[in-house]
Design a protein around this nucleic acid. Structure first.
Lengths: 261, 261
DNA sequence: CCTTTAAGTTCCATTAAATGGAACTGAAGT
DNA sequence: ACTTCAGTTCCATTTAATGGAACTTAAAGG
C-alpha cells in the first residue's frame, strides 16, 4: 500500500469528536505498527499536512488543509451559490439553514447558517446521515430514477423512526411526491420535534448536486411561515438552476405544498 | 522524494485563483514528468484527496479535505473562540472583522465576517500578507522580543507603502507602542483608504497565537466609533486571555488609544 | 527515590512502491 | 486525413515504505 493511502486514513480519523490524534490512536484505530504510525505522523507534519499541538505529541490538521479545504466551496461553485441562497433565506426567516451533498446513500452537511431563535436546530458540518431518512436526502434522491435509488440500497434499509420511510416502496412513493412538489419535507425523522424542508439543484457541467435545506422546531412554525420557507428556497434554487441550466431541476408546485400538512 | 511530498505540492498549487488543476498544470507548475503527474492525480483521487470535476480531466480538492480543513478551527480552539468574539464585534459595529495567524513573517487570514455597510472591506481567506505591514501582523509580532523580530527579517524588508514601517528601527518603535497600547493600528498600508485595528492573544498550552482584527474605510469612522472598536476588541481578547491564562497578553491602555490619531 | 509500565522513536534487512523516459492512445483543430 | 497537444501506460531502475525488535523517554506506583 502507498503511504498516500495511509495518510488519507489518518485524515479520516479526524472528526467532530476527534480533533487531534497521537501515535497510539493510530495504532488502535488503524491497526498499524507503531513504528509506522510514528514515522507517518512525523512525515505528514514535515510535509505540512499536520501540525503538532504545542509541545505535545498530539497532531491536528494543518492550516494548509484548512485553506485547501476552504477552496472546495469555490471549486464546487454550485456550493457557493447555494450557500448564498440558504444564507439569505436563513437570515430572512431566522431558522437554521444548511446545504448538503450526497455521497452514495449518505448525506454530508457542507455549510450551515445557525438560526437566530433561542430554540434553533444545530447542525454539524461533516456528519453523515442516511439519505433516505432526511429531507435533504430525499430531495437529492428524487433527482435519480427509481432504479438508481434501488441500486443504492441493495440490502434495503432500517428506518430510524416511525415517520421515516419504512421500506423501499414507501421511499419511492415519497420520492414521487417530491418530484411533483419540487421540495422534500421531513418531520421527526432524525431528531424529534424538528421539521425540515429541502430543495435540490445540480450543475450539469460538473455533475455536482446539492440540497438547500431549512430546519426548524415543528412547534414554532405556522403554516404560513412554512409556505414562505418553501417559496423562498424554491425560488432561490430556481435562480441557480436557471443560471447553470440544470435541466433536471424540479420547479416548485405550490398547490401541493398548500394541501400537504 | 516521498509521494507524500508530491501530493502536498499538488495541494499547494490550489489557491483562490486556481480552484482546479490538470496534468499539464502540474508539469508546468512543479516541473514533474507528466507520467508522474498523471498517476499522482489519479492516485490522489482514488484515495479521496481530490475529486474530478464532472467528466473532465480537471481535479479539485475533495469533500474530505473540506471536512478535515473545517476541523482546524476546532482543533485550534483558540481560533474558534477568537472567531466568536470578532463575529460579535463585527455584528455590533457593522464593519468587516477577521482573525489571522502568523506563519513566519507572513500573516494568513483564517476566518472572516463581512461587514454590513455598502462600503466594506473584503478580505480573502488564505491569502498571505507581510506581517510587518499590517495591524494584525504587528499585533502578533509585538508578542515577540525585538531579537525574535529581527531574526524573522534577516535581509530586512521592503515597505509596500509610505505609512508602513520603512525599516527595522521604525518597525521596532511601532511594536513598542503596540506593547504599551495593547492594540495595533494600520492606515493606508495594504489598501488605500482602509484602516484596521488588531489585538493578539495566545494559548500557552498549544502555542497558538491569533490576531483579532476589525477593518473599515478610514473616511466613515468617527473617533468615537474607533474607540468603541478598540474597546470591544480589547475586552473580547481579554476575556479569552483570562480564560486560557495567556500570560503574555497585553491589556488595553485606553489613554494611549485616545491620544493617538 | 527507585521501579514499573506505557508511549514514542530509531534501526535494519526485506519488500514494495515511485520514478522517468519512451511508446502509445485519444481528442481537437486544420 | 493529417497534425498537434494532452493524457495514459509500460518497463527496468531506483528509491522509499514496512514491521519486528531494540532502544529512549515520560508518566504512574510503591
Amino acid at each position: 500500500m502507498s503511504i498516500l493511502s495511509s495518510a488519507v486514513d489518518v485524515l479520516r480519523c479526524f472528526s467532530s469528536t476527534r480533533h487531534d490524534v497521537t501515535v497510539t490512536d493510530l495504532v488502535t484505530l488503524l491497526g498499524m505498527p507503531k513504528s509506522n504510525a510514528s514515522r507517518l505522523l512525523r512525515a505528514m507534519r514535515d510535509e505540512g499536512l499536520l501540525e503538532t499541538v504545542g509541545e505535545s505529541k498530539r497532531y491536528r490538521p494543518s492550516l494548509l488543509l484548512n485553506q485547501v479545504g476552504h477552496l472546495y466551496r469555490f471549486a464546487a461553485s454550485l456550493i457557493d451559490r447555494a450557500d448564498a441562497i440558504v444564507g439569505r433565506v436563513s437570515d430572512q426567516i431566522g431558522h437554521t439553514g444548511y446545504i448538503s451533498v450526497r455521497r452514495g446513500n449518505e448525506i454530508v452537511g457542507v455549510t450551515a447558517h445557525p438560526g437566530r431563535h433561542a430554540l434553533r436546530v444545530v447542525t454539524s458540518i461533516g456528519d453523515r446521515i442516511p439519505a433516505f431518512a432526511s429531507s435533504t436526502g430525499r430531495a437529492l434522491l428524487a433527482r435519480l430514477s427509481d432504479e438508481e435509488v434501488r441500486a443504492l440500497y441493495p440490502a434495503g434499509f432500517t428506518p430510524p423512526s416511525a415517520t421515516a420511510p419504512q421500506d423501499m416502496d414507501e421511499l419511492l412513493a415519497r420520492l414521487a411526491i417530491v418530484r411533483r412538489a419540487g421540495f422534500a419535507e421531513s418531520h421527526d425523522e432524525a431528531v424529534h420535534g424538528v421539521r425540515a424542508i429541502s430543495v435540490a439543484v445540480g450543475d450539469p457541467t460538473t455533475g455536482d448536486e446539492v440540497a438547500l435545506c431549512l430546519s426548524f422546531p415543528a412547534a414554532t412554525v405556522e403554516p404560513a411561515e412554512r409556505l414562505a420557507i418553501i417559496r423562498s428556497l424554491g425560488q432561490g434554487a430556481a435562480e441557480i438552476a436557471a443560471l447553470i441550466q440544470d435541466k433536471r431541476f424540479i420547479p416548485l408546485n405550490l398547490s401541493i405544498a398548500e394541501t400537504a400538512p
